[in-house]
C-alpha cells in the first residue's frame, strides 16, 4: 500500500473509526438476506477468485479487468464516513483506488454521461436471490462527474485487510457523500452510457429513493427523518451533515440544481 491518505478528518471525535467487528457484522447486502447479520452469516458461499469486471459502453477501449489487474492499481487508505439511508452511520478505513483511474484506462467517449454498475447475480452463491426483495441483479449509477470525482473510489479492502465477502468482496464502489446503497457491492460490470441508468432502489420505490441520493438532512425519507443518525457503537443520535460532511469537496457538482427535486 502507498502512504495512508485520510480525507477531511476535521473533528477527531466525529471520525473515530467504527470497530471492525461492527462494520463486518452489521450489513445490508440483500443478496445474502435482509437481516443485518445475514450477510456475515451467509456470504461465505461467494467465490471472489477468479473475478472479472467488464467495462464497456461508450468507451474507446472496452476492457475486462481481472481482480489481479485491479489489485495492481496503486492502493490507498481512505477513512470515510458511511451514512446508511436507514439512519445509522459508521466510519470505515477503506483500501482502494479512485474510480477515475480505472475509467481513464478505457477511454470514455464524448457520449459517456453516466456510469452504470451491476452486482453479481448468481443463485448458487447468493441465497437471498430466491426472494424478490428487489429486482436482481442490483444496479446502481453515477453521473460521469460524480464517478470521476477524486473522493469516489473502488475499494478492495478495509481495515488494512482484504475486503470481507459481506462488505462486497472482491471489489465495491464507495461514494462517501451519498447514502450507502449507492456504494454498490461485488461489481461485475461497469457500463458508460449516454442516458441516466436505472438504479435498484429507485426502480423499487421511486418516491423514496432518487437517482442522486446525496446525504441530505433537509430531505426526509418519506418513512423516516434524515435529520439525525446514530453512529454505530454510540448511544445518542447526532445531526446528519449535508453531503455527509463532504460538502466542501462535492457541493459544486450540484450547483444550480434543486436538491429537493433531485433527491
Amino acid at each position: 500500500f502507498q502512504a495512508p491518505l485520510t480525507v477531511s478528518p476535521k473533528d477527531p471525535k466525529m471520525d473515530a473509526q467504527t470497530p471492525m467487528k461492527s462494520a463486518t457484522s452489521y450489513n445490508n447486502f440483500y443478496e445474502f438476506g435482509t437481516d443485518k447479520t445475514d450477510p456475515s452469516e451467509n456470504a461465505g458461499t461467494l467465490r471472489t477468485r477468479p473475478w472479472e469486471i467488464a467495462v464497456d459502453g461508450d468507451v474507446g477501449k472496452p476492457t475486462t479487468f481481472g481482480i489481479e489487474d485491479l489489485l495492481a492499481f496503486p492502493l490507498e487508505e481512505r477513512v470515510y464516513r458511511l451514512r446508511c439511508v436507514e439512519g445509522w452511520s459508521m466510519v470505515i478505513p477503506w483500501v482502494g483506488f479512485p474510480l477515475a483511474e480505472l475509467l481513464k484506462r478505457v477511454d470514455p467517449t464524448g457520449n459517456a454521461k453516466y456510469v452504470a454498475f451491476q452486482t453479481l447475480s448468481d443463485r448458487s452463491q447468493m441465497p437471498g436471490l430466491k426472494y424478490p426483495v428487489l429486482q436482481w441483479p442490483y444496479v446502481e449509477g453515477l453521473r460521469m462527474d460524480e464517478a470521476m470525482h477524486p473522493l469516489t473510489i473502488l475499494a478492495v479492502g478495509m481495515y488494512g485487510e482484504t475486503l470481507p465477502n459481506q462488505n462486497g468482496a472482491p471489489v465495491r464502489l464507495v461514494v462517501p457523500w451519498k447514502y450507502g446503497f449507492k456504494s454498490i457491492k461485488s461489481i461485475v460490470r461497469i457500463t458508460l452510457t449516454q442516458d441516466q441508468p436505472p438504479t435498484s432502489w429507485n426502480r423499487s420505490q421511486p418516491r423514496e429513493y432518487g437517482f442522486y441520493s446525496n446525504v441530505n438532512p433537509e430531505v426526509d425519507h418519506p418513512r423516516w427523518s434524515q435529520a439525525t443518525e446514530r453512529r454505530v457503537g454510540e448511544f445518542s443520535r447526532r445531526k446528519t451533515l449535508p453531503f455527509n460532511g463532504y460538502g466542501e469537496e462535492v457541493a459544486s457538482l450540484y450547483a444550480g440544481m434543486d436538491l429537493r427535486k433531485n433527491y
Binding site: 440483500y30 435482509t34 436507514e86 426472494y131 426483495v133
Partner: peptide
C-alpha cells in the same frame, strides 16, 4: 409491512 425496505415476506 410498511416499515421494511423492499419486498420482504
Amino acid at each position: 409491512v410498511m416499515l421494511v425496505k423492499g419486498w420482504q415476506y
